[in-house]
């Protein structure tokens, strides 16, 4: 089982990307995990042996407490926060200043070197806003990772994208490329690859609706939460979902996970 514990901090988002797993948008219910719950669960996770944390959504930085929550978690274990990269105003960057030097990475979505290609799936002006924000985060001393979600990236398109992220101050080691997963809005739009539990590394994922097999689990389609990768509704104490996912992992053949390199 993966050592990272994930949190779905919230489900709402200022964007409504075409392949969003959770059908997030400004209009959906927040379904937020209270910051105090995230911190309490993270504290418990350390005792259970988890080695790092991930925060995703929705857009986590829509939550005013998020910089403080991330700093608290980083005092326990390394943290990666997934963000659409469009909310990093001067004010938010000032609030992120305490993260400099902490074991924190903000993973920003950028799908193409071509603004037109990127923005078609994400939002108008998204490319411009993200490529402006990344160097500012880097300058603020925050480690930035770039996640590219793509239906297919040929060598030339990939090289141009890599040249772009290098120019923004992000190394090749901090660039991940993964396929569109056919869940949530991607499934409605006929995008991506089908996945089952065996294709996904088991990484316990806590949401307001329960604990899931992986951060690709608590997806929403037709405004209905998918339960096929639900582990338990109980999230606290964390030992309950942790024990349940361990029971599920037991007996899996070695190497059955990560078949599609979806991480």
């Amino acid at each position: 089982m993966g050592g990272r514990l994930w949190f779905y901090s919230n489900y709402h988002c200022n964007l409504a990307c075409a392949y969003c797993l959770t059908e997030s948008s400004p209009r959906v219910a927040r379904r937020a995990l209270p910051a105090a719950d995230i911190i309490a669960l993270a504290t418990e996770a350390v005792d259970l042996g988890f080695t790092s944390f991930g925060i995703t959504g929705g857009e986590p930085f829509l939550l005013p407490d998020m910089p403080r929550t991330v700093a608290r978690l980083a005092g326990l274990r390394p943290v990666v926060v997934l963000s659409n990269g469009t909310l990093f105003t001067d004010r938010l960057l000032r609030r992120l200043a305490p993260l400099a030097g902490l074991p924190v990475a903000i993973q920003v979505s950028l799908d193409s070197a071509d603004a037109e290609v990127n923005d078609e799936l994400r939002a108008p002006q998204n490319h411009a806003r993200v490529t402006e924000a990344i160097p500012r985060l880097v300058d603020a001393g925050v480690r930035v990772r770039i996640a590219t979600t793509s239906e297919g990236l040929d060598a030339e398109a990939r090289e141009r994208l890599c040249a772009l992220h290098r120019s923004l101050g992000v190394s090749d080691d901090d660039h991940v490329v993964r396929p569109v997963v056919r869940r949530g809005r991607a499934a409605t739009g006929g995008l991506g690859v089908d996945v089952a539990a065996a294709d996904l590394p088991p990484e316990l994922t806590i949401t307001a609706d329960g604990a899931f097999w992986s951060p690709f689990g608590p997806t929403v389609r037709g405004q209905r939460l998918d339960t096929d990768l639900l582990v338990t509704r109980t999230t606290r104490p964390l030992s309950i979902p942790a024990a349940a996912i361990l029971r599920l992992v037991t007996g899996r053949p070695p190497g059955a996970d990560a078949g599609l390199n979806i991480r």
Partner: peptide, 28 residues
């Protein structure tokens, strides 16, 4: 199709009945 992992085996032989289909909302 939506059966949670802990209780999926109860759905493998076909319709498990309404009681199982209801309790599956809370797999633990």
């Amino acid at each position: 199709a939506q059966a949670p992992l802990l209780v999926r085996r109860h759905f493998e032989g076909g319709d498990p009945g309404a009681l199982v289909a209801a309790l599956a909302h809370v797999p633990e």
